[in-house]
């Protein structure tokens, strides 16, 4: 399956860039001029490190979705069908990585779909889309 991967050997958690990845995602994918709405969020730690909040396509949300709005596509990426979503937000509550997000103006939640628009704009070349094995379905 396709998975967005961040290399913190290269990413400096936004200390020397303008979070181009977040801005590109917000504008290109979600059509909003607000990086806080992006499907990946880069956070800097005070001790110098950092972390990224993003979806690794683990599929836990697919298991808990009551309306079958979440399914893997042929690339293994978990996609949300807006027509089937009932806005229950169990996907948000059950995501251990806090990667499912919600814009107060939209009923349907959103997350990273490994589309790769962020990869192209990262000035450090820290982001990549990688092909990794699909994890086994978990009982949640």
């Amino acid at each position: 399956m396709k998975q967005l991967v961040i290399d913190f050997q290269k990413c400096d958690a936004g200390r020397n860039c303008n979070h181009e990845c977040e801005m590109e995602c917000a504008i290109k994918v979600f059509k909003v001029d607000d990086p806080a709405q992006a499907a990946l969020q880069i956070k800097a730690y005070e001790d110098g490190g950092g972390k990224a909040v993003l979806c690794d396509q683990c599929g836990d949300c697919v298991v808990v979705c009551p309306s079958e709005a979440l399914k893997r596509n042929k690339l293994g990426v978990v996609m949300i069908d807006k027509q089937l979503c009932v806005g229950c937000y169990m996907c948000i509550g059950f995501c251990e990585k806090d990667a499912f997000m919600r814009n107060p103006d939209w009923i349907v939640p959103h997350k990273c779909t490994s589309c790769g628009v962020c990869v192209k704009v990262c000035p450090h070349g820290a982001l990549s889309i990688q092909d990794v094995p699909e994890p086994a379905v978990r009982i949640i």
Binding site: G87, C88, Y89, I92, G93, F94, R102, P104
Partner: peptide
Amino acid sequence: AGDLNHPVDPETIANTGIKYH
């Protein structure tokens, strides 16, 4: 859908629901 009750404060409902999940 998630808003068929047309509640006055959907934000509070969403946040309370997610906290509980």
